[in-house]
Design a protein around this nucleic acid. Structure first.
Length: 821
RNA sequence: GCGAGAGUGGCGGAAUUGGCAGACGCGCUAGACUUAGGAUCUAGUACCUUUUCCGGUGUGGGGGUUCGAGUCCCCCCUCUCGCACCA
């Protein structure tokens, strides 16, 4: 090519612009002006686990920042903050292992991670950094606890709870994945403990309703819906025979009530001990003991054959006064509904299996055709006609549900009920590195909340956090021993700390002003900037963080402290990056270390390659060779800018320049649309096409004929379009082509729809659906004209000649199909 | 077991509404430039047949709807994710 080839010097360039951006405070968001054009773009802040920034973080933060930059260039006043979700087990476990205090290791970690985050070159407004483990922050986490407490939404109760033997703490239901600890995958066991809960169940209905008003992935909404698990049915009361006791059951099929042939209580049901007869006591006790010993994994395995024992007691079916035996079985869960079920083996698969095993009667009360059948081979669970059901016999079962409920209500046998799978959120943890729960236990006054003006309850530094199974805070007498805020007498502090998910349930409110020390968030700025317009983070938080954060927003909304109840208007989940189509993991030894590639190719190239690998929401497969494609592309653009530096083109050339101009407009259009939808990979390939087009033009048209203006426009557009993807690089190019700092204050290019289209278009000509020729015609040419040209084509003649054309299909500007016989 | 999504060249992946399958990149091949190239530029690259042309086949498998199906419908296989006795 005869030109000295230069290579893009990313190391210096990236350093240069990072410095300049910082000096000029380019990314400091003006929170008070341009609020009508505000755009709050948030990524899930980082949980500094000690692993530093891994590729998943990069994949979350890099592309989201590109999107935010695109929005900024479109004229939005973008706010993009970053912070540290710094409480939590990793720091504490690290401390136990290495003897370094969590406060110190966390501080070191944050220091290091901040540098790595800066290397991404994102538009974070560093003046708004948050650290949830700082007293200035967790003071307000405690404040929120008190707020919920005062409003009856935080309470303490003894309950069988999930216990992780490895983490030595209780876990919320959401943190138990298939019977294992969400964090360390240890099998979870049960303990009866006095624990703190947030009453998220009060918000089940509101959490479901809000789903209709948010632009979230359908899958995530479905997961939340399933987790909340709403089901409508009836509560029915069965009297225990020869006793004052009553058994309450929940059923979605009151229409099958006449088919009840026994009752089942969960082994943990409070009535079990009371009901059991002397003869049965021993077997029942043994069974209960056995059930308690088993883990959830063992107990809930659907492969496991159902077991149970008879209590010796009987219950009376309210609708027909039948006396049915009461059993206990571990297929009934104490945590769902009332912990007791009416068993209808004829119409419930589980009951059928159980009844068959223990020779309990099976009665048909729903029939597909309204006629009774000899013997059921399996449970008939679908709708049908009610039979053997007293006055309801003959009623279609769906109608029957409503009618039976009315009948139950009239006779006070039961009532219509909605039941939810959702449990209250267990928030106390027997760990050290978290926000202390601001409660004091006084021998006289009982449970006393710490007054707001005494917050924060400071996490003491000196504790023995190597303790096993008990809250480390218990080991610091100075912390534990205090005085009652009410009566002043000696009292003890609560020694449990809060689940870290409490910290992250409100952080998005604090970002606009993390300095504020009179309130958890700046009401004025929150009114202007919230809710979050775009939220991006991993799908693994679908039922944890994302539901808790919604819960908090709804509570605050109901208390009139904020004026919105859905915190995240639009949500996108980034996909997972794999290596050789496998999940990256230390045990597989296939972890890609971002630092190595950032050093080798630069931050922009690394980010851009991640965005090019696959579609953002699906993730992609990392390839050490693949990144060279982006590396080459960046250099290709760099040389192109160089080539066009002293653009000596003087010509007026029109044919090819017109095509280049078309490509330019078309590229702007496609890149804009793709960026909007987070389709980064295709956006990048469009820019590549523009670059390819520019090279072709320069090479195919002699220099003196080249159209200067068209080239200049293409060059400027190219740099602007590439800016969100490769910010340092584009800033340098922008300066090179003589534009004023900064490109991120420049406007995103506009396109003209008319100019994106070609004058002549290739039309595919098919005969009987098979492609036989391609013809070039004027855009929007009349059908007749196009047909004429197509028919005249000799290849078409070959296939059509001598046959009858039965049908001619014309798809304008696209295709023709001749159907011949 | 139930529910959702996916399955496209040697590889990563494209393809709003059914309308030229394989954009873009990696890899590979050839040419150019070079003392050299693991640099760069250009061209080619789904498979089969064929020297070429011309043909034929092709989006996990099988059926269907349609002038026309990667796209819609039915059945089956595989993978991923979610739920997993929820009464």
């Amino acid at each position: 090519m005869g030109v000295v080839m230069s290579t893009y010097p990313f190391t210096e360039v990236e350093k240069k612009w990072r410095q300049k951006w910082e000096e000029t405070q380019l990314y400091k968001t003006d929170m008070n002006n341009d609020v009508d054009k505000k755009l709050y773009c948030l990524v899930m802040f980082i949980y500094p686990s000690g692993d530093k920034l891994h590729i998943g973080h990069w994949y979350n933060y890099g592309p989201t920042d590109s999107w935010a930059r695109f929005k900024r260039m479109q004229g939005y006043n973008v706010f993009e903050p970053m912070g540290y979700d710094a409480f939590g087990l990793p720091a504490e476990n690290y401390a136990i292992k290495h003897g370094i205090h969590p406060a110190i290791s966390t501080a070191q970690n944050i220091e290091y991670i901040r540098q790595q985050l800066k290397a991404i070159g994102a538009m974070y407004d560093w003046s708004k950094e948050i650290n949830t483990s700082a007293p200035e922050y967790y003071k307000w986490t405690q404040w929120f606890f008190l707020l919920l407490y005062k409003n009856g939404l935080a309470y303490r109760k003894k309950a069988p709870v999930n216990w992780c033997p490895k983490c030595q703490t209780v876990l919320a239901n959401e943190q138990v994945i298939e019977g294992r600890c969400e964090r360390c995958e240890t099998e979870v066991t049960h303990r009866d403990l006095e624990q703190w809960f947030f009453k998220i169940t009060d918000y089940a209905e509101k959490l479901l309703e809000g789903h209709n008003r948010i632009d979230w992935p359908e899958k995530t909404i479905t997961m939340q819906k399933n987790w909340i698990g709403k089901s409508e049915g009836a509560k029915i009361i069965f009297q225990v025979d020869k006793s004052e006791d009553k058994i309450e059951v929940f059923t979605t099929r009151p229409d099958t009530l006449w088919g009840v042939t026994y009752m089942v209580l969960a082994p943990e049901h409070p009535l079990v001990a009371k009901l059991t007869t002397e003869q049965q006591r021993e077997v029942v006790n043994n069974y209960v003991a056995q059930a308690r010993k088993e883990s959830d994994i063992q107990r809930t395995s659907t492969e496991k054959e159902k077991t149970g024992v008879f209590t010796g007691a009987y219950a009376i079916n309210p609708v027909n006064n039948e006396r049915v035996p009461i059993w206990i079985a571990d297929y009934v869960l104490v945590t769902y509904g009332t912990g007791a079920v009416m068993a209808v083996p004829g119409h419930d698969t589980r009951d059928f299996e159980f009844a068959t095993k223990y020779n309990l009667p099976i009665r048909e009360v729903i029939s597909p055709d309204g006629k009774p059948h000899e013997k059921l081979k399996e449970a008939y669970i679908d709708a049908g006609i009610m039979i053997n059901s007293g006055e309801f016999t003959g009623t279609p079962s769906k109608e029957g549900i409503e009618k039976v409920i009315r009948y139950l209500e009239e006779n006070k046998f039961g009532e219509k009920t909605v039941n939810y799978k959702l449990r209250d959120w267990l928030i106390s943890r027997q760990r050290y590195w978290g926000a202390p729960i601001p409660i004091v236990y006084c021998p006289d006054c009982g449970e006393v909340p710490v007054p707001e003006d005494q917050l924060p309850v400071v996490l003491p530094e000196k504790v023995d956090f190597k303790g096993r199974g008990e809250s480390p805070l218990k080991t610091n007498p100075d912390f534990v021993n205090t005085t009652c805020p009410k009566c002043g007498k000696p009292a003890r502090r609560e020694v449990d700390t809060m689940d870290t998910f409490v910290c992250s349930s409100w952080y998005y409110l604090r970002f606009p002003n993390p300095e504020i020390d009179t309130y958890p968030f700046d009401k004025d700025l929150v009114k202007k900037w919230l809710p979050v317009d775009q939220y991006v983070g991993g799908a693994e938080h679908a039922v944890m963080h994302l539901m808790y954060a919604r819960f908090f927003a709804k509570v605050l909304y109901d208390l009139k402290l904020i004026d919105f109840d859905e915190p995240f208007k639009r949500l996108v989940h980034q996909g997972v990056i794999t290596k050789d189509s496998n999940k990256m993991s230390k045990s597989r030894g296939n972890v890609v270390n971002p630092d190595i590639f950032v050093e080798k190719y630069g931050s922009d190239t690394f980010r851009m390659y991640m965005m090019f690998m696959g579609s953002y929401e699906d993730g992609g497969d990392w390839s050490d060779e693949g990144i060279t494609g982006i590396h080459r592309f960046i250099n290709r653009v760099w040389r192109l800018i160089d080539l066009l530096k002293d653009n000596k083109a003087t010509g007026n050339e029109t044919k090819e320049s017109k095509e280049l101009e078309r490509i330019r407009h078309y590229t702007i259009k496609m890149v804009t649309n793709d960026l909007e939808r987070f389709h980064f990979n295709t956006a990048i390939s469009r820019i590549m096409e523009l670059v390819n087009g520019m090279y072709l033009y320069i090479q195919n048209v002699p220099l003196e004929q080249q159209n200067r203006q068209v080239l200049e426009d293409a060059k400027e557009t190219l740099v602007l379009l590439i800016a969100p993807f490769a910010p340092h690089f584009a800033e340098e190019c922008w300066e090179k082509i003589g534009k004023p700092y900064s490109i991120f204050n420049a406007r995103w290019p506009e396109y003209d729809e008319a100019k994106t289209q070609k004058d002549t278009i290739p039309i595919a000509v098919q005969v009987n659906g098979k492609l036989r020729a391609t013809i070039e015609v004027e855009r929007n040419a009349a059908d007749e004209t196009v047909l004429g040209i197509a028919l005249a084509d000799e290849k078409i003649q070959k296939h059509v000649g001598g046959k009858t054309i039965v049908k001619k299909i014309v798809v304008k500007n696209r295709l023709i199909n001749f159907v011949v016989k």
